[in-house]
Design a protein around this nucleic acid. Structure first.
Lengths: 96, 96
DNA sequence: TATTGATATAAACCATTGTTGATGCGTCAG
DNA sequence: CTGACGCATCAACAATGGTTTATATCAATA
């Protein structure tokens, strides 16, 4: 899980994710959206891929990327479980 | 929010948080738990404090740290909202 | 097949950040 | 007041990670 936090700790990667959150996109589209160089976007996508947060599909000459719902779900429930992130309940502040 | 991810992107800090998730603790207790040097634990706690994830109370000679529930709640709902993290629902994979 | 468009990979560089060791400061016991 | 305990801060160093530039790959098209 630390890998996920680590991956999401970069501004540009977060912007890419926010874009992907509203639908899959090609690398070129992401470049236009975030205004970064092509190699840089490609590099960030690599990081997101390694973290298992996105997956890639080949469509003609372009590579389309999209978020992997299950991964985000697992991440969310991990945080609720281990870190005690609420959602609705909140144990945490234990007695001495 | 990126600051929070950034703060949680370190292994040792995550271990500290997991310990705090089951109840507040003094710096010494945390040192024993994570097995790091005193200055290092102190430094990591500083980071967590700056991120607004924990707060500190003085008890005699020692400093007791605990998680701030509200901060974690805000963090959780941000992720659900902006990143589309489920919890139950899952939009994301939008139509073209 | 040669060419162009779309993306990935590699090397070199620079900026951040984690780690350590030394030191300073507040608090309690003698 | 003095010494010991608990913790924070600072300077120096090491490691990690993001950025750029150049180059390679792969698919479509002429």
């Amino acid at each position: 899980m630390r890998l996920i936090h680590k991956t999401l700790s970069d501004v540009n990667r977060l912007r890419i994710v926010r874009r992907l959150a509203q639908g899959e996109a090609s690398v070129t589209e992401l470049i236009d959206y975030v205004g970064l160089s092509q190699p840089l976007v490609s590099w960030h996508l690599g990081k997101l891929r390694i973290a298992g947060l996105v997956e890639t599909r080949r469509a003609g000459r372009e590579t389309v990327t999209r978020l992997i719902p299950e991964a985000w779900d697992r991440f969310a429930s991990y945080e609720r479980r281990v870190l005690g992130l609420s959602g609705t309940d909140a144990p945490r502040t234990a007695a001495s």
